[in-house]
């Protein structure tokens, strides 16, 4: 079918600003939601440039290019770990209306090497007044790991973009790299699981949980040695069952006190009198102040400077000084 390129160009030129706004809106929402969950990932949005749009319309031979090109607005979410791809998937389903979903990890044959990302086509829920006018437009969201992202970028440069077909040995070497990247993600995940299963890893896992929530509330550099020192003492306020359930306990605590925590971290952003307010373990102190200030005070007084706890308790509004 012959494409009326000029009318396509004019229409996309006219509507592209709306797609720029849509990409920014979707990226902003994903960025805020990942931050809230403490997921470390890169989120970038863009509207396809006019030349790419027209080239795609020509190359793909669509029956209706305007309707069939769904990535006029696109957002890329790049995670550190493979397991985080699943977390972002859940989050996208919560945030948007999903029109199409494709998980390449599950759709390709086991004996085939290919890109393994997850793709969505979404629109912003129409009931949301902040997104009025964007409801009918689609935005593509790609979710993949850094390794998969590397593959996507390199393969695009070497296999698809060149004006001529690459030689067979180049294609072969790219596919070898693809296998390597899949192995890379798998080994990173396996190593991470093994470390997390080591005996005595509970405290480190608690710190990881605390960091996730802390970074979602306050973007500040922290001192990991201080965290380990304080956490070593604070862990004594928790029984074995409480440590095992701590991820859930802390998530519920942060959710129930989100507004208060946000106020505190905003108010103390330029106030460095108490060093623990810049540390993720202050969340554990606040949680313990709510749950059992007596045990906290007892453990603290034996191992840490009492003045620091008194100051944190004044900030949190739960006294420990009797």
């Amino acid at each position: 079918m012959l494409v009326d390129l000029e009318s396509l160009r004019l229409r996309y030129q006219a509507e592209r600003p709306a797609y720029v706004a849509l990409a920014d809106e979707v990226a902003g929402r994903v960025r805020a939601a990942t931050r809230r969950r403490g997921l470390v990932c890169d989120v970038n949005g863009r509207a396809k440039d006019i030349a790419s749009f027209l080239k795609k319309a020509l190359r793909k031979d669509y029956a209706s290019p305007w309707d069939d090109i769904h990535d006029k607005a696109g957002v890329r979410v790049v995670t550190v770990y493979e397991s985080q791809v699943d977390e972002v998937e859940d989050l996208v389903r919560d945030l948007f209306v999903v029109h199409h979903h494709e998980d390449k990890r599950r759709s390709i044959a086991p004996d085939t090497l290919s890109y393994l990302g997850v793709h969505f086509e979404v629109s912003v829920p129409p009931a949301d007044p902040a997104a009025s006018g964007e409801a009918e437009r689609l935005c593509e969201i790609q979710v993949h790991t850094r390794a998969q992202n590397l593959w996507a970028t390199v393969s695009h440069e070497l296999l698809y973009k060149p004006a001529q077909e690459p030689p067979a040995e180049v294609t072969r070497s790219i596919y070898r790299l693809m296998a390597l990247l899949e192995l890379f993600d798998g080994e990173v995940a396996r190593g991470r699981r093994q470390i997390r299963d080591l005996p005595g890893y509970e405290e480190a896992r608690m710190l990881e949980t605390l960091e996730r929530h802390f970074y979602a509330l306050a973007a500040r550099p922290t001192d990991i040695e201080l965290s380990r020192h304080v956490l070593g003492a604070l862990a004594l306020t928790l029984g074995a069952e409480e440590v095992a359930a701590y991820e859930t306990t802390l998530a519920e605590f942060v959710e129930a006190n989100r507004e208060k925590l946000e106020e505190i971290f905003t108010d103390y952003a330029d106030d460095d009198r108490n060093p623990l307010l810049s540390q993720p373990e202050c969340l554990l102190v606040f949680e313990r102040l709510n749950a059992d200030p007596f045990r906290l005070a007892q453990v603290w007084d034996e191992r840490l400077p009492p003045g620091l706890l008194r100051s944190l308790s004044d900030v949190w509004g739960v006294p420990v000084d009797y």
């Binding site: 108010d267 330029d270 009198r273 308790s313 004044d314 900030v315 509004g317």
Partner: peptide, 19 residues
Amino acid sequence: LSAEVRNFFREKIAGSLGS
């Protein structure tokens, strides 16, 4: 007011009344 002084009063009010 600076952030420090604002927070100082906040802590003193909450700390005194809390105890």
